[in-house]
Design a binder for these strands. Structure first.
Lengths: 151, 151
DNA sequence: TCTTGACCTCAAGTTAACTTGAGAGAATAT
DNA sequence: ATATTCTCTCAAGTTAACTTGAGGTCAAGA
């Protein structure tokens, strides 16, 4: 037990706070790698804890499982990721995170800005660009349009 | 027509980029105020454009319609919001935005940090707190736990 | 006058991300 | 050895946030 690197689904659940059924779902959807034990139980490497945590956090920040899967897919399942893996991974995700931060900042700025003037005026803040809104990961969402609404 | 402040659902759709059916849904769910015209059509004040835009942006940032509704509910429907309205509004939302930015930043930092070492190690970054993860708006989500995972 | 287009309602369908439940086998604790 | 706990599969149910479709109204243009 000391050197056994594999964890049961229940242990992953306890360590991450996710429900067992959710983890089962992630494993079935290939977001987390799982082997099978002799009795048929899923057995996870310790790295699964990080993956699940990563999923939970990312979800709260507005990423879908599809997007998260794409990001996680750039990482090797069980092996320690190489530097090249990481470069790809970080580059893919970092950009998107940046634009999200930017968007949140704009959103917040538009709020603060409006406290002063007392009106819900989005016109002077560079939020929201209806055209781009479809593109998520890849093209990268942008909310930089200056003046779309006159109101 | 010059001074008519009311817009049709189609006009709102064109101005915001949202689908007509979606706007109908928002109106039915009371996220956007709508009157009815003589023929039964929904008629929106110009402020609806801002509200819809706000909804679209917020959604992309990981907020549910429920959360957005709570935030928008602090604003008066048709009237120009007062300074007090705004204070409440901004305070409610700003806090949450801040913690989201914080979380995104941590997420990004943890990525950058790991490029150097070549491992997906979440252990040294203060991301993720399984216990708090349930609380969304109100108690405010926090991902500050240092060491929950040893891996 | 006709017909096109924008709007309406209401019911049902859709997708994501799970959860719940039934029924059964396996692992652990006493 | 037995009870309890954990896990399994598979099917069905759930919630959010819509979309789609059928069937109908109404106003404006050719």
């Amino acid at each position: 037990m000391k050197n056994d690197p594999l964890l049961s689904i229940g242990q992953i659940a306890k360590r991450t706070g996710a429900a067992v059924s959710a983890i089962r779902y992630y494993a079935d959807e290939q977001l987390v790698p799982a082997q099978r034990g002799p009795g048929g139980q899923r057995l996870f490497p310790r790295s699964a804890i990080r993956r699940v945590s990563f999923i939970l956090i990312s979800q709260q920040l507005g990423y879908s499982l599809q997007e998260i899967k794409q990001v996680l897919a750039t990482l090797p399942d069980g092996r320690t990721p190489t530097k090249a893996d990481w470069d790809k991974f970080a580059r893919l995700f970092s950009k998107d995170i940046d634009s999200k931060i930017e968007a949140l900042q704009s959103l917040k700025d538009s709020l603060s800005g409006c406290i002063g003037c007392g009106c819900l005026s989005l016109k002077k803040c560079k939020l929201y660009n209806p055209e781009d809104r479809i593109n998520h990961l890849g093209a990268g969402p942008r909310f930089l349009m200056g003046d779309a609404a006159e109101d």
